[in-house]
Design a protein around this nucleic acid. Structure first.
Length: 296
DNA sequence: GTTTAATGGGTAT
DNA sequence: TACCCCTTAAACT
């Protein structure tokens, strides 16, 4: 379940697995048969993410455009044995990319289309700056600030608006508001410029760590440990493609490669901690549904 | 066996 | 603000 870090991690994993190869593209579920036919057998030029949008570019200006939505999963795994020996699709697999060593199965996405470069540009043009593309041309955080500074909408709402800021979802939103002690309901126009700059910089620091470990990490102790691991070495060590069930568990736990096994327990300051004590002051974390999403 | 929740977002009202 | 779509697995009966 995806925020921007998931999509960027997925894009680079797909890029490594498929760029320069011509995968067989199918739709075992049957709902993307025509699109699959447009792509199958063509050389993959690359994969990239913008915010929560994923694009896989095939030769001939045909681009697979995917948005995972709330529940979508693009499960990438390596298999041994070559074509014809791949694992059978399980569940509602809308798209399967298959080459000699890799299978990627897409399930539950809200968007899955073949688009042109012009359509890709139009999708990207609707997005605000992406903290995972910090420093890149045309990805200026001032664009987000100009929207925030003149908006009467709540800051919490603005952080989730992909046309203001691309890639942040509910977890990063809740956690970053907590980290900077910002009232979620304060209107954008009452946010101080220094507050916005600090939050943008924090996301620029935090989100690549999320990409490296395949997990949103926002607690300071975990961040310190994560930075130490990254400093001493090999983020690829965490790019494990399968996570088996724990010893004694009856059910096998499978995770997509881009989510990977992480050495960190999933733990947040406020997200999904309703009723539990604040890590700083001990008061109870409260929840309020804002436009259909749980704000903590 | 059925219901619900989930890190999203588009469209209608 | 409501409702719709996508799919799965955990949490309920």
């Amino acid at each position: 379940m995806p925020e921007g870090h998931t999509l960027h991690r997925l894009a680079s994993a797909l890029d490594r697995a498929y760029a320069g190869t011509a995968p067989v593209v199918t739709s075992p579920q049957g709902r993307f048969v025509e699109g699959a036919a447009l792509l199958s057998g063509r050389l993959v030029e690359g994969a990239e993410a913008w915010g929560k949008q994923l694009f896989v570019t095939f030769e001939g200006d045909r681009i697979l455009s995917v948005h995972l939505g709330l529940i979508g999963v693009f499960e990438l795994s390596r298999y041994a044995g070559g074509l014809g020996c791949e694992p059978p699709p399980v569940g509602a697999v809308r798209v399967r990319l298959l080459n000699q060593f890799h299978v990627a199965d897409l399930r539950g996405a809200t968007v899955c289309d073949v688009v042109s470069p012009e359509q890709l540009d139009a999708i990207v043009a609707r997005l605000g700056p992406d903290p995972l593309r910090a420093g890149q041309l045309g990805n200026d955080p001032e664009r987000a600030w100009s929207r925030i500074a003149r908006s009467g909408r709540s800051f919490a709402e603005l952080l989730m608006d992909q046309s203001v800021l691309a890639g942040v979802g509910n977890v990063y939103r809740c956690e970053v508001l907590f980290r900077h002690r910002v009232d979620p309901f304060r209107p954008g126009r009452e946010i101080r410029p220094a507050t916005w700059r600090a939050i943008w910089q924090d996301l620029v620091d935090l989100m690549p760590i999320g990409v490296a470990f395949g997990q949103i990490i926002t607690l300071d102790e975990q961040l310190d440990a994560a930075r130490a691991l990254l400093a001493e070495g090999d983020p690829a060590a965490y790019a494990v493609s399968w996570q088996g069930g724990l010893e004694g568990e009856s059910r096998r736990v499978r995770r997509p490669a881009y989510e990977s096994a992480s050495p960190f327990e999933r733990s947040y300051a406020v997200y999904k901690r309703t009723g539990e004590p604040c890590p700083t002051c001990g008061s109870r974390v409260r929840t309020q549904v804002v436009a259909g999403r749980n704000l903590f």
